[in-house]
């Protein structure tokens, strides 16, 4: 049986195995000798390709690797300066969350309270009054009768919210400041914001104590 040169049943080889090895070994060792001092275009092209790819790789990684941080998931994140940036929560949003979770039960969504039992917050002279008073009311609670807009309220006590002994809520100073800031600009109230630092200052100056009373508060300006 004889196969034609292009018989699909049998692919002929033009070179023996040994000569494949030899010729390629020679090709490697001859490279320098044959070229002399001339530059050949192709090798230079290949090396430029590799260099270009490495340049691209370095640039891309520098820009999009998020400083190899295990905490950066967005490749477009701006390169970090190394400083830890704590994200500040919007006090109004935080305060609203706190109010809707707890305060709303007594003071109601419209801030009107319940006549005779829970005092209103909307338009209240206490809420719109000196910040030192409201900070203390939330931080330490309030017991006994309190007069708001000419009506007396005394049936229920304001609970203790701060991180003090006997507190039911253990809100930190930031949360207290946030809820006060929220209340003081809602329902037509026009009092200024209260910062966490102000709350912290009161907290530090007073320390632990029992619930406030109206007379004590009225002494504060």
């Amino acid at each position: 049986m004889s196969e034609q040169p292009n018989d699909p049943r049998l692919d002929q080889a033009k070179a023996s195995d040994g000569s494949v090895l030899d010729a390629h070994e020679t090709a490697l060792s001859r490279q320098h000798a044959a070229d002399g001092a001339r530059y050949r275009l192709l090798p230079i092209g290949i090396l430029f390709t590799l260099s270009g790819l490495i340049l691209f790789a370095g640039t891309y990684l520098n820009r999009y690797a998020g400083h190899y941080s295990a905490r950066i998931f967005n490749e477009n994140a701006k390169p970090s300066t190394g400083a830890v940036v704590a994200v500040k929560a919007d006090p109004i949003a935080l305060g609203k969350t706190q109010f809707n979770a707890v305060c709303i039960t007594c003071h109601q969504a419209n801030g009107q309270g319940i006549a005779g039992i829970y005092p209103p917050l909307a338009g209240s002279e206490w809420v719109n009054g000196p910040s030192a008073r409201v900070i203390r009311i939330v931080l330490y609670g309030l017991k006994g009768t309190v007069n708001v807009e000419g009506h007396a309220y005394g049936a229920a006590a304001m609970p203790v919210f701060g991180q003090v002994a006997g507190s039911a809520y253990n809100w930190n100073d930031e949360k207290i400041a946030a809820v006060l800031t929220y209340v003081r600009q809602e329902w037509g109230n026009k009092a200024g914001p209260i910062t966490a630092d102000e709350v912290a200052a009161v907290h530090k100056a007073v320390g632990d104590r029992k619930e406030e009373s109206e007379t004590e508060l009225l002494d504060l300006k």
Binding site: L50, A57, L61, Y64, G66, R71, F73, N74
Partner: peptide, 27 residues
């Protein structure tokens, strides 16, 4: 995906570098 950004960025770069290998194979 929910993985640190450098892992996928490294893969992007590696795919590009691997192109050099492919180019040599083709040549």
């Amino acid at each position: 995906g929910p993985v640190p950004a450098w892992i996928s960025s490294l893969a992007v770069v590696s795919c590009a570098l691997l192109f050099f290998h492919t180019f040599v194979v083709l040549l």
